[in-house]
Structures are given as C-alpha cells and as structure tokens.
C-alpha cells in the first residue's frame, strides 16, 4: 500500500510504497544511473580502448605468432577459430571494467551521496552493468571489424548478431561478479588485483585460443565446461555457421547461474554499512 503522509503538514513522503511503485522507482533510478554512466563512458573513450586492447593483442599474437602451431589441431583456419574466442575474452574484459567503475564510485565518494538519497540502492549497480554491456557491444563490434581486416569472415549476418549478443550476455553475467568484488573491497587497486584471479585462469584454461585436446588431461574437464569455453564454442559455431550442439544452452545456463548468485550478493554487499 502506498501511504502518503504529510509529516509536517506541507511535505508528502512515501512511507510504505506498493510493489508496483517500488518497481517503477527502481526502473527510474536504474535509468538515471544508466544516463549518468553513459555520460561517463563518453567522457572516458580510453575505457573502450582498454576494453578491446587485450583482445586485439591476443588476436594479433596468437594469429601471427602461434597461429600455425595451434591452428593445426583445430580443424579450422586458425583465425576463424581464434576470433570467436577473442570476442568472448573482450566481453570478459569489459565485465572487469564494471569492477573498476564501481570501485571508482567508492573512492570518488559519490557512493556516499547515493546512499543518502531516497533511491533504490541496487540501481547503482544495475545501471552500471547495463552501461557496461552497451560499451561492450561497441567493443565487440570494434574487435570484429579488426578481425575482418585481418581476413576473418562471418558465415552470416544473423550469426554475427547472435554471436555478439551471446558474448555480451556472458560478459553481463560476469559484470555482476565484478560488481560483487568491488562492493566487497571498495578499493580500485585491490579490485584490479583480485580481477586477475578470476580473469586469467578462466581465460587461459579455456577453448578461447586452443582446443581442449591440446591441454593436459586433468585440466580437460574444467576447460570443457567452464563458462568461457562453452561461450567460445557457442560463438564459434554461430560465426562459422557450424553446429553448436548444447553450447548455447550451456552458455545461457552459466549466465543464469552468474546472475542468480552475484546479483543478490553484490546488492547485499553494496548496501552493507559499518
């Protein structure tokens, strides 16, 4: 029930908002934070560069330096194998920026104001993850174009769109993991370091750059089913017009798991006060 009470005879306050009003306000707040984060994104174009630079680095390094050696075992032209993996890595890098951005909010102090405002506190994270997902799409298109300049070919336009959507989706899931870390440690330098702990193992022990058969046996079960691998495999199938098996389903399942665990966790950690 929404009760409007004029506590001093002149001012209306919402004391007990209905669920509908709560949701409407959460949407309004998320939109507002998104607006703010989009302004920040346009003021920091270097963030987009940081988001793609690692992907491009891997693209060039693996394709031109290790390409022959790894490519032999993939059954693909190596660039056709590599680019989908790099797209997923790029989305992951974008997710890491959610961590950095949220930590910056803490160190700049703006979070202190958000906390004193009559707003939905989850909106601070929700708005940011959406802004980061939008920037991620721009980054993914940029990497795809660079790949095409290197000779990569998408099998179909629909496949390209689906691939970028799926990569954005897995990036979005990891954004909430990043948000949880930032809400816990609240310091930019710590966040940067902690990100390495999940980013690198997932990235390197995956099928993003090389097929699972090239890895030691004990690593293969993990490397087959971890989120970056299934997402890379799914994206690879989509861009090459090849069968995807259950990899899309598995990717969607991973996204659901990430959101299920880290949305409530990051909101809880963010709200926590001394």
């Amino acid at each position: 029930m929404t009760t409007r009470n004029t506590y001093d005879g002149t001012r209306a306050v919402v004391i007990d908002p209905s669920v509908a009003l709560r949701l409407r306000r959460a949407g309004h707040d998320t939109g507002t934070v998104l607006w703010r984060d989009m302004i920040r994104t346009t003021r920091q174009p270097e963030m987009l560069v940081f988001a793609v630079v690692m992907g491009v680095f891997f693209l060039v390094l693996f394709n031109y330096v290790f390409g022959g050696a790894i490519g032999a075992g993939t059954g693909y032209d190596y660039l056709q194998y590599l680019l989908p993996g790099v797209l997923v890595i790029t989305a992951l890098q974008g997710a890491q920026q959610t961590s950095m951005g949220l930590a910056a909010d803490f160190s700049e102090g703006v979070n202190d104001r958000f906390r004193s405002l009559p707003m939905n506190q989850s909106a601070v994270i929700a708005g940011r993850t959406i802004a980061d997902a939008l920037r991620n799409i721009a980054g993914l298109i940029l990497v795809a174009v660079i790949g095409m300049l290197m000779g990569f070919r998408f099998a179909s336009f629909g496949g390209a769109v689906a691939a970028i959507a799926l990569a954005t989706g897995i990036g979005y899931g990891f954004s909430w993991l990043g948000a949880a870390i930032a809400a816990k440690v609240r310091q930019s330098d710590m966040v940067g370091m902690l990100s390495m702990f999940w980013l690198f193992p997932l990235m390197l022990a995956s099928t993003a750059f090389a097929p699972v058969e090239s890895m030691p046996g004990w690593l293969q079960p993990f490397a087959t089913y971890q989120p970056i691998s299934v997402a890379s495999d799914a994206v690879r199938g989509l861009v090459n017009g090849m069968p995807v098996g259950d990899t899309i389903t598995l990717t969607l399942a991973w996204i659901a798991v990430l959101l299920f665990v880290f949305v409530p966790m990051s909101v809880h950690l963010y709200r926590k006060v001394d």
């Binding site: 703010r36 700049e108 979070n111 104001r113």
Partner: peptide, 25 residues
C-alpha cells in the same frame, strides 16, 4: 553534504545536480 565531497567527478555541476535531482524524484 559530507566532510569529503560526494559528487561525480566526471560530470559537470549541472549534470551532477540533474542526477541527484532525478534520484530525489
């Protein structure tokens, strides 16, 4: 207004006030 400034550093004063004004509904 806390002891250390709590504003968005990347936004202008107008944008900051617009942001907080929206959040205050």
């Amino acid at each position: 207004a806390g002891q250390s400034a709590a504003v968005d550093e990347k936004l202008t004063a107008r944008e900051n006030l617009e942001l907080f004004g929206r959040l205050y509904k």
